[in-house]
Design a binder for these strands. Structure first.
Length: 414
RNA sequence: GCGGCUGUAGCUCAGUUGGUUAGAGUGCUGGAUUGUGAUUCCAGAUGUCGUGGGUUCAAGUCCCAUCAGCCGCCCCA
C-alpha cells in the first residue's frame, strides 16, 4: 500500500474541472486587463523569502519546506509567489524604466502546516501583481479585475474588507499609541498578544480570541496615524471604489501576516468557508522590490487559494459542468477500421468523439458509456456500414435514430 | 506546534457486556439465445477490521504507541 505524502493530494475528476474553470476564467479576465502571465520556479534561495515575507512571520519561522541541495545551497519551496515574481522582475531588469508591469501567476505553493479542510501542504494560488504604479487608481483597477474574475465564476455573497496598514514611517507613531492603549488594559489580553506586543503589535488587532477582541474596543486605529499622503491615498481609494459600485467595509482591525505590506490591505471573505474564512488577501507592498535589490518601485497585488475557491464553487454550484464525448462503437473488424477513419476526420474537424477500441460485445460498450455519463452512443455495425450510416442511441431516453456519416459533424454540433 | 473526534469490502456504514468460518446497502463480475445500456430477476467475488505492540483461554471490540483523516486553535490563501 502506498499513499501520497501527507498534505499532498491528487487533483482529478470534478475538483480538477473546477480548477480548470477557475484557471481559464483567470486567463480570460486578466488578459482583458492587459496582465501577462509569469511562471517562476518552485525552488528559490531561502534568502528570497526571508528577506521578503519576513523573518518574524510564522511562514518563514516554521512553515517552509527548506533544505540544503546537493551543492549545500539553502533552498526553499515557495510558500507564496510574490517574492519569486519580484525576484524575477529584479533579475531581468524589468523595472528599470517607469512602465507599469502587470503580471499574474498560478501554480502550487508549499507550506508545512497542520492540515484542515481546504488547507493542504501543497496548495494552489492565483495571484496578480502590478508594479510601478503608486496610485489608488491602480489598486482599484486590480480590485475591479479581481471582482470581474470572481463574478465570472458566479460568486456573489463575498465581502471586501479594507484597511490601511500605514507605512514604515507612519507606523512608529501608531505603535506608540497602541502600546499605551495596550498597557492600560494589558491584563485583558491573551498570552499570544503579550508576545505580539513585542514582536509585531499590529497583529494583536486580528487576534481571534474573543477576550482580546473585546479588549480592543476603542483602540487607536492605524488610519488616524497615517501621514497626509497615505491618508489622501486611502480616501481616494474609497471614493473610487464607490464610483465603481464595488462594495466594501472598512475594518480597522484588518492586518496582514506578511511583513511587506504598506498602505492598502484587504481581504475577501466567504461565509461558506468555516474557519478558513478568508478566501483571498492582498495589498500594497511599496518597499519590497527595493528590499530585494531592485529599484524603488511601488507595487500592489493579491493572491487567491484555488483549493478553497474550488471548494466554495462546489458548495455553490455542485458539480462542474461536464459532458463526456459521445462513444463511437464499431462492431467487427471492417467497422473498426472505418470507425478509426471516421473518427480521425471528425477529430480534425474539432468534434469530440471517444472511440471504443476494445472490440467487445455491444452490451459492454453501452454499459461503459452509461457509466461514464455519455449521452450518445454511435453504433457502427454491419448493416450501418453497408449503408454509410450510424445507429445513434440517446442513452438518457433510449431513443435511437440513424445518421448518415456525412451528417455527423453538423448534427453533433447542433 | 496545541486540543478534541474518527479509522471495518471500491463507496456509505452495522457489528450487543470481548466469544465459532466478520455483515448490510450500493458498486463490481457473470448470466436471463449469440448487435442494445440504464430498470428487473438469478448467481458470484471481494476485507492484513489503518499499522505495531500489550492484556486475555479468546480482541474488530479493552489498553498503549504510531500513522492517516476530520474539527477547532495558531497561522494563512
Amino acid at each position: 500500500m502506498s499513499s501520497s505524502v501527507k498534505g499532498m493530494r491528487d487533483l482529478w475528476g470534478d475538483e480538477l474541472r473546477w480548477f480548470r474553470r477557475i484557471e481559464e476564467t483567470a486567463h480570460r479576465v486578466f488578459g482583458a486587463h492587459g496582465y501577462r502571465e509569469i511562471r517562476t520556479p518552485i525552488l528559490e534561495y531561502t534568502e528570497v523569502f526571508k528577506r521578503s515575507v519576513g523573518d518574524s512571520s510564522d511562514i518563514v519561522a516554521k512553515e517552509m519546506y527548506e533544505f540544503l541541495d546537493k551543492g549545500d545551497r539553502s533552498v526553499t519551496m515557495r510558500p507564496e509567489n510574490t517574492a519569486g515574481v519580484v525576484r524575477a522582475m529584479v533579475d531581468h531588469k524589468l523595472l528599470v524604466n517607469n512602465d507599469p508591469q502587470l503580471l499574474y501567476y498560478m501554480g502550487p505553493m508549499f507550506r508545512y502546516e497542520r492540515m484542515q479542510a481546504g488547507r493542504y501542504r501543497q496548495f494552489w494560488q492565483i495571484g496578480a501583481e502590478s508594479f510601478g504604479v503608486a496610485s489608488p487608481e491602480s489598486e482599484v483597477e486590480s480590485l475591479a479585475m479581481l471582482f470581474d474574475f470572481l463574478q465570472g465564476l458566479g460568486l456573489k455573497s463575498l465581502s471586501l474588507s479594507l484597511n490601511s496598514v500605514g507605512t514604515p514611517e507612519s507606523r512608529p507613531a501608531f505603535n506608540a499609541a497602541f502600546r499605551a492603549f495596550f498597557d492600560a488594559r494589558a491584563d485583558r489580553f491573551c498570552e499570544d498578544c503579550h508576545r505580539r506586543i513585542e514582536t509585531n503589535p499590529m497583529r494583536i488587532l486580528d487576534c481571534k480570541n474573543p477576550g482580546c477582541q473585546a479588549a480592543l474596543e476603542g483602540h487607536p486605529t492605524i488610519v488616524e496615524f497615517l501621514d497626509d499622503a497615505s491618508k489622501a491615498h486611502h480616501t481616494r481609494l474609497k471614493e473610487l471604489l464607490t464610483t465603481l459600485d464595488i462594495p466594501f467595509t472598512e475594518n480597522s482591525r484588518l492586518v496582514r501576516g506578511l511583513d511587506y505590506y504598506t498602505r492598502t490591505a484587504f481581504e475577501v471573505l466567504s461565509s461558506d468557508l468555516g474557519a478558513q474564512s478568508a478566501l483571498l488577501g492582498g495589498g500594497r507592498y511599496d518597499g519590497l522590490v527595493k528590499q530585494l535589490g531592485g529599484p524603488d518601485t511601488p507595487a500592489f497585488g493579491w493572491a487567491i487559494g484555488l483549493d478553497r475557491l474550488a471548494m466554495v464553487l462546489k458548495q455553490l454550484h455542485g458539480e462542474a459542468p461536464f459532458e463526456p464525448a459521445p462513444l463511437l462503437i464499431p462492431l467487427g473488424e471492417a467497422a473498426s477500421a472505418k470507425a478509426l477513419q471516421l473518427a480521425r476526420e471528425w477529430w480534425s474537424a474539432g468534434l469530440r468523439v471517444q472511440l471504443e477500441t476494445r472490440g467487445c460485445p455491444l452490451k459492454k460498450s453501452l454499459q461503459s458509456a452509461n457509466r461514464m455519463g455519455m449521452k450518445l452512443a454511435l453504433i457502427l455495425g454491419d448493416g450501418e456500414f453497408e449503408k454509410g450510416t450510424l445507429a445513434v442511441k440517446h442513452l438518457e431516453t433510449g431513443a435511437q435514430e440513424e445518421w448518415a456519416w456525412n451528417d455527423v459533424p453538423s448534427r453533433l454540433k447542433g
